[in-house]
Amino acid sequence: MRCEEIRVCIVRVGGTNCDAETKRSFEDLGVKAFVYHFNEVLQGIDLLDYHILVLPGGFAYGDYVRAGVIFAKNFMARIGKKIMRFVDEGRPMLGICNGFQILVESGLLPGINGVSEHPEAALATNIPIGYRCGWVYLRHENNGKCVFTRLIPKGRVLRIPISHAEGRFLLPTVRGEEILNKLLENDQIVLRYSNENGEYAEGRYPENPNGSFYDIAGICNPEGTVFGLMPHPERAYYGWQLPDWTRMGKPPKYGDGKLIFESVVQYVIRKF
């Protein structure tokens, strides 16, 4: 498939607020990106006309109750079958920040044994508690399964900002180790919080900004086509978005976030 034939569907509801910059990032790569309100999807947008599905950041439906849960239940109840088919066909799906929370709440991630009826992980309230906006270092951990990071060598350190109050990745206390091993075995761990040199944060604040288990910042499903992450790659797409470009004389053209968008576009070009 040619790059310009690729169609990206970005779905928003009341409270979604990172759709425009996500769209901009995809479009910079030459693909077509469309933002639809969930109401429009219900009114007849066929997801299967699109190659990549994105749930952008924000506070879907206000995130009242628990981050992501209302939208997750809503879309799984109403278009769950369509989503499953989309995913089964190997079409990539991306959840950024609130999107990640939605993917977890809907059971699409980690999805060790397929889509689960109940969430198998959680993105809990940050420790230390509270909203935090800032840049973090992320170490790329994936061995090649995740289609969103295939252009990134394993071990490479990325710099991308976070901005959330509920991003502490948690696994059930009882079977935590077991699930973690499964995630590792399946190559589902994609990004871990680290320091500048790529040493894992080991839970230390502020390198690990929210207390996430195993420093996890992003995971994918066992097939590598559904990817959720707390950091915002669309805010690290261009060089002038970097927090320290003024130290470089002039801004570089692009930031590390671009690699994620580029990887998935490359994947779609090859696959379809």
Partner: peptide, 20 residues
């Protein structure tokens, strides 16, 4: 200031903080 999202929309060129 870190409890305010100063990056959303992805257009903040010079942020509230600078330097290491």
């Amino acid at each position: 200031v870190r409890t305010y999202d100063h990056e959303v929309k992805g257009n903040t060129v010079l942020k509230p903080f600078c330097g290491k």
